[in-house]
Amino acid sequence: MNSPAFLIKKLKELIMLAKSAENGFEKASVYAASQAIANDFDKNSQHFDIYTMEKILNTCWHIRAAIGYDITNGHSSSSHITWALGELLTLENLLDERTQLIQD
């Protein structure tokens, strides 16, 4: 697995790409990348607690919903982008907090 911090950075990039994706190729690319990251974390889930995994999977779901590759529950693409950013911010804070605990 790549560094979790590196993958978090890539998720942020994917959120921005999802926001601007206009054609099928761009949307399919964002879908594939977000799914690959979700799978990578899922394969290594034993290294993360349930709450962290929930944030990772929710971020990826919101990305996919924003581009029309997952259920939207009736919400707009812009709502899913906002929620993905919120989930990602929480995830970044969790990983920073845990890194700080390890260093102390």
Results as ranks from 00 to 15, higher is better:
residue 3 S to E: 07
residue 45 S to F: 00
residue 37 I to L: 02
residue 93 N to F: 07
residue 65 A to Y: 04
residue 96 D to F: 07
residue 60 C to A: 07
residue 84 A to R: 02
residue 92 E to K: 08
residue 23 N to P: 05
residue 12 K to M: 10
residue 32 A to M: 11
residue 92 E to H: 05
residue 55 K to L: 15
residue 29 S to M: 13
residue 23 N to G: 06
residue 68 G to N: 03
residue 21 A to G: 04
residue 41 F to Y: 00
residue 90 T to C: 07
residue 45 S to R: 07
residue 93 N to R: 10
residue 36 A to V: 06
residue 21 A to Q: 02
residue 82 T to E: 15
residue 93 N to C: 08
residue 102 I to S: 11
residue 81 I to V: 08
residue 88 L to D: 02
residue 54 E to F: 09
residue 71 I to D: 15
residue 80 H to E: 05
residue 16 M to I: 15
residue 22 E to S: 12
residue 31 Y to R: 09
residue 24 G to T: 12
residue 65 A to M: 06
residue 63 I to H: 04
residue 27 K to W: 03
residue 10 K to L: 11
residue 22 E to I: 09
residue 42 D to G: 06
residue 65 A to D: 02
residue 51 Y to E: 15
residue 18 A to F: 02
residue 11 L to K: 03
residue 18 A to K: 03
residue 85 L to I: 10
residue 32 A to Y: 06
residue 100 Q to C: 10
residue 2 N to R: 10
residue 88 L to S: 03
residue 95 L to S: 02
residue 28 A to F: 10
residue 1 M to S: 10
residue 17 L to E: 15
residue 103 Q to A: 15
residue 76 S to L: 08
residue 7 L to F: 05
residue 47 H to V: 05
residue 10 K to V: 13
residue 14 L to Q: 05
residue 3 S to R: 08
residue 101 L to K: 15
residue 97 E to Y: 14
residue 65 A to C: 05
residue 100 Q to M: 14
residue 73 N to P: 08
residue 65 A to F: 04
residue 48 F to K: 00
residue 84 A to Y: 01
residue 81 I to E: 01
residue 4 P to E: 00
residue 28 A to Q: 12
residue 36 A to M: 09
residue 39 N to M: 08
residue 85 L to E: 14
residue 90 T to W: 09
residue 7 L to G: 03
residue 55 K to I: 05
residue 23 N to W: 04
residue 47 H to E: 11
residue 92 E to V: 05
residue 94 L to N: 08
residue 79 S to A: 14
residue 25 F to R: 12
residue 42 D to A: 13
residue 22 E to F: 10
residue 24 G to W: 11
residue 46 Q to D: 14
residue 27 K to L: 05
residue 62 H to D: 09
residue 66 A to D: 03
residue 20 S to L: 10
residue 47 H to L: 13
residue 34 S to G: 02
residue 96 D to Y: 06
residue 46 Q to I: 13
residue 11 L to T: 01
